[in-house]
Simulated scan of single mutants.
Amino acid sequence: MALKVYIAGPEVFFPNGKEIIARKGELARRYGFEANTFGGGDYPSEKFAFGVAISKANEQTMRASDFILANMTPFRGLSTDVGTAYEIGFMCALGKAAFAYTNDPRAYDVRLSTDYYAGAVARGEDGMVRGPDGWMVEDHAMADNLMLDGAIVERGGTIARPPDGPVLPWDDLSVYESVLKTARAYFG
């Protein structure tokens, strides 16, 4: 029986999200995994209740999955989609294996220094790199917040990034596929 992978990421919000998600599922099958996703359902029409129902369905799907493969490409800001970050934490708390990728080759501190502070960072008296607001720039050479990277690595997973260069488009699945290869080797 194929291991079930919960494929996390913000693609559901994209105009071509269904296509990207379908391609990810097909690639997962090529590597011997079953893409575990919840189907439609009879959800309430009231907006808040609808959101709660989707959250519950996602958690049920994660519980029924063997591991997570998350897209940590920055979404609507400098960092991983907040829902995806929650899903990574949820799966790690369940003790399940976690793998991730980002199509942005830059480490979190570089994005923070360049994109948020426009390069206006300096080493403070305490030796920490800080922005003009005095806030520390988290510099751990990681793809994102240390809690995400740390949780994934501590469970034997990896966070893959493309080589230095431009940010790859959202529908470029080359880094995603490299993580599938890593997961296949991990599970044997």
Rank of each mutant, 00 (worst) to 15 (best):
A118W: 03
A141E: 14
T158S: 07
P162Y: 02
G165N: 04
M128E: 12
E138C: 05
E125N: 11
R130P: 06
D133R: 07
R130Y: 01
R130N: 07
L148M: 11
E154I: 07
I152Y: 04
D172Q: 02
R155I: 09
D126H: 04
R155S: 09
I159W: 04
D133W: 04
D164P: 10
V129P: 06
M136W: 05
T158N: 01
D171S: 00
S113F: 02
L148C: 10
P162K: 01
G127L: 03
S113Y: 07
G119C: 02
H140F: 15
E138W: 06
D115V: 15
I159M: 04
D139H: 15
A151I: 12
M147D: 10
E125Y: 00
D109W: 12
V137T: 11
V167F: 01
N145S: 11
D171I: 00
P162H: 06
I152K: 07
P169W: 08
D109S: 13
A143L: 09
D144H: 09
V110I: 14
E138D: 15
Y116W: 13
G127I: 02
G156Y: 00
D115Q: 12
T158D: 09
M136N: 12
D133I: 10
I159C: 13
D164A: 14
M136F: 07
V129F: 09
A143F: 09
M142K: 09
G156S: 07
G150I: 11
R111Y: 12
D144C: 04
M136D: 15
Y116L: 15
G150T: 09
E138V: 11
E125R: 13
R130H: 12
M142D: 15
L112P: 00
D164Y: 06
W170N: 00
A143D: 13
G119F: 02
L146N: 03
M128S: 11
G119R: 04
D144W: 09
D133S: 13
T114M: 10
M136L: 08
R111I: 13
D172E: 00
